[in-house]
Design a protein around this nucleic acid. Sequence first.
DNA 1: AGCACA
Length: 491
Amino acid sequence: MSSSAGQPQFRYAHPPSKVLHLRNLPWECTHEELVELCKPFGKVVNTKCNVGANRNQAFVEFEDLNQAISMVSYYASSSEPAQIRGKTVYLQYSNRQEVVNNKSSGDVASNVLLVTFEGVEAGDVSIDVLHLVFSAFGFVHKIATFEKTAGFQALVQFSDADTAAAARTALDGRSIPRYLLPDHVGSCHLHISFSAHVDLTVKFQSHRSRDYTNPLLPVAASAIDCSSQFALGPDGKKKEPESNVLLASIENMQYEVTIDVLHAIFSAFGTVEKIAMFEKNAGLQALIQFSDVATAVTAKGALEGHCIYEGGFCKLHLAYSRHTDLIVKANNDRSRDYTNPNPGFYQSQPSVLGPQQLPGVQPSPSTDSNFSVSAQRIGSLPQQQSWERPSLPQGGPAPSAMYRPPYSHPEPMVSSGTVPPYQGFPSYSPGPLPADSIHSAFPGQRADTSYQYGQPPPPNPSFQPFGHQYQSTYVPGPGTLPPNGGSPAYM
DNA sequence: AGCACA
Protein backbone atom coordinates (compact mmCIF):
# COMPACT_ATOMS: atom_id res chain seq x y z
CA MET A 1 0.00 0.00 0.00
CA SER A 2 2.63 2.44 0.95
CA SER A 3 4.62 1.71 -2.17
CA SER A 4 1.78 2.70 -4.45
CA ALA A 5 1.06 6.09 -2.97
CA GLY A 6 3.82 7.95 -4.77
CA GLN A 7 2.90 7.69 -8.41
CA PRO A 8 -0.77 7.01 -8.89
CA GLN A 9 -0.55 8.06 -12.52
CA PHE A 10 1.40 4.89 -13.29
CA ARG A 11 -0.54 2.65 -10.97
CA TYR A 12 -3.81 2.60 -12.81
CA ALA A 13 -4.23 1.83 -16.44
CA HIS A 14 -5.32 4.67 -18.64
CA PRO A 15 -8.82 4.41 -20.03
CA PRO A 16 -8.79 2.95 -23.52
CA SER A 17 -7.99 5.21 -26.43
CA LYS A 18 -7.43 4.50 -30.09
CA VAL A 19 -4.15 6.36 -29.53
CA LEU A 20 -1.32 4.37 -27.98
CA HIS A 21 1.69 5.87 -26.27
CA LEU A 22 4.89 3.93 -27.02
CA ARG A 23 8.12 4.42 -25.13
CA ASN A 24 11.62 2.95 -24.96
CA LEU A 25 11.80 3.10 -28.71
CA PRO A 26 15.11 2.81 -30.55
CA TRP A 27 16.85 5.96 -31.73
CA GLU A 28 15.03 7.72 -34.55
CA CYS A 29 12.41 5.05 -34.83
CA THR A 30 10.49 5.67 -38.01
CA HIS A 31 6.86 5.90 -38.91
CA GLU A 32 7.30 2.76 -41.01
CA GLU A 33 8.69 0.75 -38.09
CA LEU A 34 5.77 1.77 -35.91
CA VAL A 35 3.29 0.77 -38.58
CA GLU A 36 5.06 -2.56 -39.00
CA LEU A 37 4.65 -3.29 -35.30
CA CYS A 38 1.05 -2.18 -35.06
CA LYS A 39 -0.58 -3.22 -38.31
CA PRO A 40 -1.32 -6.82 -37.22
CA PHE A 41 -3.90 -5.33 -34.87
CA GLY A 42 -5.55 -2.87 -37.20
CA LYS A 43 -5.11 0.08 -39.47
CA VAL A 44 -2.72 2.77 -38.33
CA VAL A 45 -4.07 6.13 -39.44
CA ASN A 46 -1.55 8.42 -37.81
CA THR A 47 1.74 8.41 -35.92
CA LYS A 48 3.96 10.88 -34.20
CA CYS A 49 7.60 9.91 -33.78
CA ASN A 50 10.56 11.32 -31.93
CA VAL A 51 8.53 12.47 -28.96
CA GLY A 52 10.10 13.41 -25.66
CA ALA A 53 13.46 14.64 -24.55
CA ASN A 54 15.22 11.58 -25.91
CA ARG A 55 12.99 11.40 -28.97
CA ASN A 56 12.38 7.79 -28.10
CA GLN A 57 8.65 7.91 -27.63
CA ALA A 58 5.85 7.88 -30.13
CA PHE A 59 2.10 7.92 -30.56
CA VAL A 60 0.18 5.63 -32.83
CA GLU A 61 -3.43 6.19 -33.71
CA PHE A 62 -5.57 3.30 -34.89
CA GLU A 63 -8.57 3.73 -37.07
CA ASP A 64 -10.72 2.04 -34.47
CA LEU A 65 -10.69 1.85 -30.70
CA ASN A 66 -11.06 -1.94 -30.69
CA GLN A 67 -7.85 -2.28 -32.68
CA ALA A 68 -5.96 -0.38 -30.02
CA ILE A 69 -7.55 -2.48 -27.31
CA SER A 70 -6.59 -5.69 -29.10
CA MET A 71 -2.95 -4.61 -29.29
CA VAL A 72 -2.72 -3.56 -25.64
CA SER A 73 -4.50 -6.74 -24.58
CA TYR A 74 -2.26 -8.93 -26.65
CA TYR A 75 0.99 -7.60 -25.26
CA ALA A 76 -0.40 -7.46 -21.72
CA SER A 77 -0.56 -11.24 -21.70
CA SER A 78 2.12 -12.11 -24.24
CA SER A 79 5.30 -13.86 -23.22
CA GLU A 80 7.08 -11.96 -25.99
CA PRO A 81 7.18 -8.18 -25.48
CA ALA A 82 6.57 -5.80 -28.32
CA GLN A 83 9.90 -5.13 -30.01
CA ILE A 84 11.41 -2.83 -32.61
CA ARG A 85 14.95 -3.57 -33.75
CA GLY A 86 15.15 -6.07 -30.93
CA LYS A 87 14.39 -3.45 -28.32
CA THR A 88 11.45 -3.91 -26.01
CA VAL A 89 8.76 -1.32 -26.60
CA TYR A 90 6.36 -0.43 -23.82
CA LEU A 91 2.90 0.60 -24.88
CA GLN A 92 -0.22 1.87 -23.19
CA TYR A 93 -3.28 3.87 -23.97
CA SER A 94 -2.52 7.50 -24.50
CA ASN A 95 -4.29 10.04 -22.40
CA ARG A 96 -5.35 11.76 -25.59
CA GLN A 97 -7.91 10.63 -28.11
CA GLU A 98 -6.15 11.54 -31.32
CA VAL A 99 -2.72 12.22 -32.72
CA VAL A 100 -2.29 15.81 -33.73
CA ASN A 101 0.12 17.36 -36.17
CA ASN A 102 1.46 14.19 -37.64
CA LYS A 103 3.80 14.71 -40.53
CA SER A 104 4.45 11.00 -41.00
CA SER A 105 7.98 11.38 -39.68
CA GLY A 106 8.32 14.88 -38.31
CA ASP A 107 11.01 15.60 -40.85
CA VAL A 108 9.35 18.21 -42.97
CA ALA A 109 11.98 20.79 -43.73
CA SER A 110 11.58 24.20 -42.16
CA ASN A 111 13.70 27.28 -41.67
CA VAL A 112 13.17 26.89 -37.91
CA LEU A 113 14.90 24.18 -35.92
CA LEU A 114 13.73 22.70 -32.67
CA VAL A 115 16.77 21.95 -30.56
CA THR A 116 16.61 19.73 -27.50
CA PHE A 117 19.54 19.78 -25.11
CA GLU A 118 20.46 16.59 -23.36
CA GLY A 119 22.32 16.65 -20.07
CA VAL A 120 21.85 20.28 -19.17
CA GLU A 121 19.43 22.43 -17.29
CA ALA A 122 17.91 25.65 -18.53
CA GLY A 123 20.52 28.34 -18.31
CA ASP A 124 23.50 26.05 -18.75
CA VAL A 125 23.54 26.85 -22.44
CA SER A 126 23.38 30.58 -22.94
CA ILE A 127 21.56 32.10 -25.85
CA ASP A 128 24.88 33.59 -26.92
CA VAL A 129 26.50 30.19 -27.15
CA LEU A 130 23.57 29.01 -29.23
CA HIS A 131 23.94 32.00 -31.47
CA LEU A 132 27.61 31.25 -31.92
CA VAL A 133 27.10 27.60 -32.70
CA PHE A 134 24.28 28.05 -35.18
CA SER A 135 25.70 31.14 -36.84
CA ALA A 136 28.30 28.91 -38.41
CA PHE A 137 25.69 27.90 -40.96
CA GLY A 138 24.20 31.26 -41.82
CA PHE A 139 22.54 34.31 -40.45
CA VAL A 140 20.50 33.40 -37.40
CA HIS A 141 17.39 35.55 -37.37
CA LYS A 142 15.87 34.66 -34.03
CA ILE A 143 16.32 32.34 -31.08
CA ALA A 144 13.78 31.45 -28.44
CA THR A 145 14.49 29.14 -25.54
CA PHE A 146 11.99 27.50 -23.23
CA GLU A 147 11.43 24.57 -20.92
CA LYS A 148 8.96 21.85 -21.66
CA THR A 149 8.44 18.29 -20.62
CA ALA A 150 11.22 17.42 -23.03
CA GLY A 151 13.58 19.61 -21.01
CA PHE A 152 15.47 22.67 -22.07
CA GLN A 153 14.82 23.46 -25.72
CA ALA A 154 15.35 26.18 -28.23
CA LEU A 155 13.87 27.27 -31.52
CA VAL A 156 16.45 28.63 -33.93
CA GLN A 157 15.24 30.52 -36.98
CA PHE A 158 17.28 30.75 -40.17
CA SER A 159 16.52 32.52 -43.42
CA ASP A 160 15.57 29.38 -45.25
CA ALA A 161 15.06 25.67 -44.87
CA ASP A 162 18.25 24.76 -46.71
CA THR A 163 20.39 26.60 -44.19
CA ALA A 164 18.45 25.07 -41.34
CA ALA A 165 18.83 21.63 -42.85
CA ALA A 166 22.58 22.10 -43.15
CA ALA A 167 22.79 23.05 -39.50
CA ARG A 168 20.64 20.13 -38.49
CA THR A 169 22.67 17.63 -40.50
CA ALA A 170 25.92 18.91 -39.06
CA LEU A 171 24.89 19.26 -35.44
CA ASP A 172 22.17 16.69 -34.73
CA GLY A 173 23.53 14.13 -32.31
CA ARG A 174 26.72 16.10 -31.73
CA SER A 175 27.75 17.98 -28.62
CA ILE A 176 28.39 21.58 -27.83
CA PRO A 177 32.14 22.01 -27.25
CA ARG A 178 32.90 21.59 -23.61
CA TYR A 179 34.63 24.94 -23.25
CA LEU A 180 31.49 26.76 -24.26
CA LEU A 181 29.64 25.30 -21.30
CA PRO A 182 29.74 26.05 -17.58
CA ASP A 183 32.25 24.08 -15.56
CA HIS A 184 29.66 21.94 -13.84
CA VAL A 185 28.17 20.65 -17.09
CA GLY A 186 29.62 17.37 -18.25
CA SER A 187 28.32 17.38 -21.80
CA CYS A 188 25.48 18.69 -23.85
CA HIS A 189 24.22 16.58 -26.73
CA LEU A 190 21.98 18.19 -29.29
CA HIS A 191 18.87 16.65 -30.76
CA ILE A 192 17.61 18.69 -33.66
CA SER A 193 14.48 18.44 -35.72
CA PHE A 194 12.51 20.81 -37.86
CA SER A 195 9.93 22.97 -36.21
CA ALA A 196 6.49 23.64 -37.62
CA HIS A 197 7.15 27.32 -37.06
CA VAL A 198 8.24 29.57 -39.90
CA ASP A 199 8.60 32.86 -38.06
CA LEU A 200 9.11 33.21 -34.35
CA THR A 201 7.57 36.09 -32.48
CA VAL A 202 10.17 37.65 -30.24
CA LYS A 203 8.83 40.60 -28.29
CA PHE A 204 11.89 41.40 -26.23
CA GLN A 205 15.60 40.85 -26.29
CA SER A 206 16.03 38.85 -23.16
CA HIS A 207 17.99 36.04 -21.59
CA ARG A 208 15.59 33.59 -23.23
CA SER A 209 14.83 35.08 -26.59
CA ARG A 210 16.61 37.18 -29.15
CA ASP A 211 15.73 38.78 -32.47
CA TYR A 212 18.93 39.53 -34.36
CA THR A 213 17.05 41.21 -37.20
CA ASN A 214 15.61 43.97 -35.08
CA PRO A 215 18.11 46.02 -33.08
CA LEU A 216 15.37 48.40 -32.05
CA LEU A 217 13.46 45.74 -30.16
CA PRO A 218 13.05 46.68 -26.51
CA VAL A 219 15.20 44.88 -24.03
CA ALA A 220 13.24 43.03 -21.41
CA ALA A 221 13.61 44.31 -17.89
CA SER A 222 14.66 40.85 -16.82
CA ALA A 223 17.64 41.05 -19.15
CA ILE A 224 18.95 44.42 -18.02
CA ASP A 225 18.08 44.27 -14.37
CA CYS A 226 21.32 44.16 -12.43
CA SER A 227 20.13 41.33 -10.26
CA SER A 228 19.84 39.00 -13.24
CA GLN A 229 22.06 40.28 -16.03
CA PHE A 230 24.96 40.91 -13.74
CA ALA A 231 24.18 38.08 -11.42
CA LEU A 232 26.77 36.13 -9.52
CA GLY A 233 29.06 34.10 -11.67
CA PRO A 234 29.86 30.42 -11.16
CA ASP A 235 32.68 31.39 -8.85
CA GLY A 236 30.40 33.49 -6.70
CA LYS A 237 32.01 36.72 -7.76
CA LYS A 238 29.95 39.55 -9.10
CA LYS A 239 30.11 39.76 -12.86
CA GLU A 240 31.12 43.03 -14.42
CA PRO A 241 28.67 44.73 -16.75
CA GLU A 242 28.76 43.15 -20.18
CA SER A 243 29.99 45.16 -23.12
CA ASN A 244 30.56 44.77 -26.82
CA VAL A 245 34.15 45.79 -26.17
CA LEU A 246 36.55 43.40 -24.53
CA LEU A 247 39.72 44.35 -22.71
CA ALA A 248 42.35 41.71 -23.31
CA SER A 249 45.46 41.43 -21.19
CA ILE A 250 48.15 39.13 -22.41
CA GLU A 251 50.23 37.23 -19.92
CA ASN A 252 53.50 35.42 -20.50
CA MET A 253 54.23 37.15 -23.80
CA GLN A 254 56.97 34.92 -25.11
CA TYR A 255 56.00 35.71 -28.69
CA GLU A 256 54.84 38.79 -30.42
CA VAL A 257 51.09 39.16 -30.63
CA THR A 258 50.15 41.26 -33.60
CA ILE A 259 46.91 43.02 -34.25
CA ASP A 260 46.27 40.58 -37.07
CA VAL A 261 46.58 37.61 -34.76
CA LEU A 262 44.10 39.20 -32.39
CA HIS A 263 41.77 39.97 -35.25
CA ALA A 264 41.94 36.40 -36.48
CA ILE A 265 41.27 34.96 -33.06
CA PHE A 266 38.33 37.15 -32.17
CA SER A 267 36.81 37.08 -35.65
CA ALA A 268 35.99 33.43 -35.08
CA PHE A 269 33.12 34.62 -32.94
CA GLY A 270 31.73 37.40 -35.08
CA THR A 271 32.56 40.59 -36.83
CA VAL A 272 35.36 42.50 -35.14
CA GLU A 273 34.82 46.19 -35.73
CA LYS A 274 37.89 47.72 -34.18
CA ILE A 275 41.00 46.81 -32.25
CA ALA A 276 43.32 49.04 -30.30
CA MET A 277 46.49 47.77 -28.62
CA PHE A 278 48.54 49.54 -26.00
CA GLU A 279 51.11 48.96 -23.28
CA LYS A 280 49.85 48.89 -19.74
CA ASN A 281 51.80 48.05 -16.62
CA ALA A 282 54.66 46.69 -18.68
CA GLY A 283 52.29 44.31 -20.43
CA LEU A 284 50.33 44.29 -23.64
CA GLN A 285 46.64 44.99 -23.61
CA ALA A 286 44.10 45.36 -26.34
CA LEU A 287 40.55 46.51 -26.75
CA ILE A 288 38.52 44.40 -29.13
CA GLN A 289 35.23 45.84 -30.30
CA PHE A 290 32.43 43.63 -31.57
CA SER A 291 29.26 44.88 -33.14
CA ASP A 292 27.16 43.53 -30.34
CA VAL A 293 27.36 42.51 -26.72
CA ALA A 294 26.25 38.95 -27.36
CA THR A 295 29.24 38.19 -29.54
CA ALA A 296 31.62 39.72 -27.03
CA VAL A 297 30.08 37.64 -24.27
CA THR A 298 30.54 34.51 -26.32
CA ALA A 299 34.10 35.32 -27.23
CA LYS A 300 34.98 36.12 -23.65
CA GLY A 301 33.46 32.91 -22.41
CA ALA A 302 35.28 30.85 -25.00
CA LEU A 303 38.68 32.50 -24.88
CA GLU A 304 39.18 33.55 -21.28
CA GLY A 305 42.28 31.89 -19.89
CA HIS A 306 43.25 30.31 -23.19
CA CYS A 307 46.70 30.67 -24.63
CA ILE A 308 47.29 31.99 -28.10
CA TYR A 309 50.28 29.73 -28.56
CA GLU A 310 50.85 26.20 -27.34
CA GLY A 311 52.88 25.85 -24.20
CA GLY A 312 51.14 28.41 -22.05
CA PHE A 313 52.45 31.35 -24.03
CA CYS A 314 50.50 34.55 -24.51
CA LYS A 315 47.68 33.70 -22.16
CA LEU A 316 44.55 35.77 -22.63
CA HIS A 317 42.68 37.41 -19.80
CA LEU A 318 39.47 39.08 -20.83
CA ALA A 319 37.27 41.63 -19.16
CA TYR A 320 34.44 43.78 -20.35
CA SER A 321 35.49 47.28 -21.20
CA ARG A 322 33.41 50.25 -20.20
CA HIS A 323 33.59 51.47 -23.76
CA THR A 324 31.08 50.74 -26.44
CA ASP A 325 32.70 52.43 -29.41
CA LEU A 326 36.42 52.94 -29.84
CA ILE A 327 37.72 55.89 -31.78
CA VAL A 328 40.43 54.70 -34.10
CA LYS A 329 41.99 57.50 -36.06
CA ALA A 330 44.36 55.48 -38.17
CA ASN A 331 45.01 51.94 -39.17
CA ASN A 332 48.43 50.81 -38.15
CA ASP A 333 50.07 47.98 -36.26
CA ARG A 334 48.46 49.07 -33.01
CA SER A 335 44.99 50.12 -33.99
CA ARG A 336 42.56 49.16 -36.69
CA ASP A 337 39.07 50.16 -37.69
CA TYR A 338 37.72 47.32 -39.81
CA THR A 339 34.49 49.18 -40.46
CA ASN A 340 35.95 52.27 -42.03
CA PRO A 341 34.33 52.50 -45.47
CA ASN A 342 36.98 54.87 -46.77
CA PRO A 343 39.10 52.75 -49.11
CA GLY A 344 42.09 54.99 -48.63
CA PHE A 345 42.01 54.15 -44.98
CA TYR A 346 42.99 50.61 -45.86
CA GLN A 347 45.35 51.12 -48.69
CA SER A 348 48.66 50.77 -47.00
CA GLN A 349 48.20 48.56 -44.02
CA PRO A 350 48.49 44.81 -43.72
CA SER A 351 45.44 42.75 -44.34
CA VAL A 352 44.65 39.21 -43.41
CA LEU A 353 43.66 38.83 -47.01
CA GLY A 354 45.82 39.13 -50.02
CA PRO A 355 45.76 42.29 -52.09
CA GLN A 356 43.61 40.59 -54.68
CA GLN A 357 40.84 40.54 -52.10
CA LEU A 358 40.94 44.16 -51.07
CA PRO A 359 37.65 46.03 -51.33
CA GLY A 360 36.55 46.62 -54.85
CA VAL A 361 38.54 43.72 -56.21
CA GLN A 362 36.81 40.44 -56.79
CA PRO A 363 38.60 37.53 -55.21
CA SER A 364 39.59 34.87 -57.65
CA PRO A 365 38.34 31.41 -56.72
CA SER A 366 41.50 29.88 -58.04
CA THR A 367 43.78 31.93 -55.82
CA ASP A 368 41.95 32.02 -52.49
CA SER A 369 42.24 28.40 -51.50
CA ASN A 370 43.93 29.39 -48.27
CA PHE A 371 41.03 31.61 -47.36
CA SER A 372 39.06 29.25 -45.20
CA VAL A 373 35.47 30.19 -45.59
CA SER A 374 33.16 27.24 -45.58
CA ALA A 375 30.93 26.67 -48.54
CA GLN A 376 27.92 27.13 -46.33
CA ARG A 377 29.13 30.51 -45.29
CA ILE A 378 29.75 31.59 -48.82
CA GLY A 379 26.34 30.44 -49.83
CA SER A 380 24.56 32.31 -47.11
CA LEU A 381 26.65 35.44 -47.18
CA PRO A 382 27.47 36.04 -50.81
CA GLN A 383 30.42 38.27 -51.61
CA GLN A 384 31.07 38.95 -47.97
CA GLN A 385 34.51 40.22 -47.16
CA SER A 386 36.03 39.23 -43.91
CA TRP A 387 35.79 42.68 -42.44
CA GLU A 388 32.21 43.25 -43.44
CA ARG A 389 29.23 42.61 -41.25
CA PRO A 390 26.95 39.76 -42.20
CA SER A 391 24.32 40.56 -44.75
CA LEU A 392 21.19 41.98 -43.28
CA PRO A 393 17.59 41.46 -44.25
CA GLN A 394 16.07 43.92 -46.66
CA GLY A 395 14.55 46.93 -45.03
CA GLY A 396 16.73 46.81 -41.97
CA PRO A 397 18.78 49.68 -40.75
CA ALA A 398 22.10 50.50 -42.31
CA PRO A 399 24.88 48.18 -41.14
CA SER A 400 26.55 50.95 -39.22
CA ALA A 401 23.45 51.23 -37.08
CA MET A 402 23.07 47.54 -36.41
CA TYR A 403 23.50 46.30 -32.90
CA ARG A 404 24.39 49.71 -31.63
CA PRO A 405 22.86 50.68 -28.35
CA PRO A 406 20.65 53.71 -28.75
CA TYR A 407 22.79 55.69 -26.39
CA SER A 408 26.20 57.21 -26.83
CA HIS A 409 29.07 55.64 -25.00
CA PRO A 410 30.36 57.32 -21.86
CA GLU A 411 33.40 59.47 -22.01
CA PRO A 412 36.66 57.66 -21.28
CA MET A 413 37.46 57.59 -17.61
CA VAL A 414 41.04 58.64 -17.62
CA SER A 415 41.31 57.99 -13.92
CA SER A 416 40.14 54.44 -14.37
CA GLY A 417 42.72 51.75 -14.16
CA THR A 418 41.39 49.94 -17.19
CA VAL A 419 41.06 52.66 -19.78
CA PRO A 420 43.85 53.08 -22.27
CA PRO A 421 44.86 56.43 -23.67
CA TYR A 422 43.60 55.69 -27.13
CA GLN A 423 41.19 58.54 -27.61
CA GLY A 424 42.81 61.56 -29.06
CA PHE A 425 46.23 60.55 -27.94
CA PRO A 426 49.13 60.51 -30.30
CA SER A 427 49.89 56.83 -29.73
CA TYR A 428 47.70 56.15 -32.74
CA SER A 429 49.45 58.38 -35.15
CA PRO A 430 47.29 59.77 -37.94
CA GLY A 431 47.95 59.04 -41.54
CA PRO A 432 48.50 55.81 -43.40
CA LEU A 433 51.67 53.84 -43.17
CA PRO A 434 53.98 53.61 -46.16
CA ALA A 435 53.03 51.00 -48.67
CA ASP A 436 55.90 48.68 -47.84
CA SER A 437 54.63 48.23 -44.27
CA ILE A 438 52.56 45.37 -45.56
CA HIS A 439 55.75 43.35 -45.71
CA SER A 440 57.25 44.47 -42.46
CA ALA A 441 54.21 43.30 -40.58
CA PHE A 442 54.88 39.73 -41.61
CA PRO A 443 58.60 39.17 -41.41
CA GLY A 444 59.73 36.47 -43.71
CA GLN A 445 56.28 36.05 -45.15
CA ARG A 446 54.82 36.90 -48.47
CA ALA A 447 52.12 39.46 -48.09
CA ASP A 448 50.21 38.53 -51.20
CA THR A 449 48.94 35.24 -49.90
CA SER A 450 46.41 34.64 -47.20
CA TYR A 451 47.11 34.97 -43.57
CA GLN A 452 50.32 33.36 -42.41
CA TYR A 453 52.54 33.72 -39.42
CA GLY A 454 56.05 34.88 -38.91
CA GLN A 455 58.28 33.49 -36.20
CA PRO A 456 55.67 32.57 -33.59
CA PRO A 457 54.39 29.01 -33.42
CA PRO A 458 50.93 28.28 -34.72
CA PRO A 459 47.96 29.42 -32.70
CA ASN A 460 46.20 27.11 -30.36
CA PRO A 461 43.69 25.22 -32.52
CA SER A 462 41.17 25.11 -29.72
CA PHE A 463 40.24 28.62 -30.72
CA GLN A 464 38.33 27.24 -33.66
CA PRO A 465 34.97 26.05 -32.45
CA PHE A 466 33.77 23.15 -34.55
CA GLY A 467 36.84 23.46 -36.69
CA HIS A 468 36.18 24.08 -40.32
CA GLN A 469 32.55 24.93 -39.98
CA TYR A 470 33.36 28.39 -38.80
CA GLN A 471 34.34 31.26 -40.93
CA SER A 472 37.83 32.15 -39.97
CA THR A 473 40.85 33.65 -41.53
CA TYR A 474 42.85 32.00 -38.80
CA VAL A 475 44.86 29.58 -40.90
CA PRO A 476 48.14 28.26 -39.64
CA GLY A 477 50.72 28.07 -42.32
CA PRO A 478 51.66 24.73 -43.84
CA GLY A 479 54.12 22.62 -41.94
CA THR A 480 53.49 24.40 -38.69
CA LEU A 481 51.19 21.99 -36.94
CA PRO A 482 51.67 21.83 -33.19
CA PRO A 483 53.08 18.71 -31.51
CA ASN A 484 49.61 17.35 -30.86
CA GLY A 485 48.90 17.35 -34.57
CA GLY A 486 46.42 20.12 -34.29
CA SER A 487 43.57 17.99 -33.03
CA PRO A 488 40.83 20.21 -31.72
CA ALA A 489 40.69 20.38 -27.97
CA TYR A 490 36.99 19.68 -27.80
CA MET A 491 37.05 16.33 -29.53
C1' DA B 1 10.59 3.51 -19.30
C1' DG B 2 5.96 7.31 -18.32
C1' DC B 3 2.27 11.75 -22.99
C1' DA B 4 3.45 15.58 -28.05
C1' DC B 5 6.72 22.84 -29.74
C1' DA B 6 7.09 27.92 -25.74
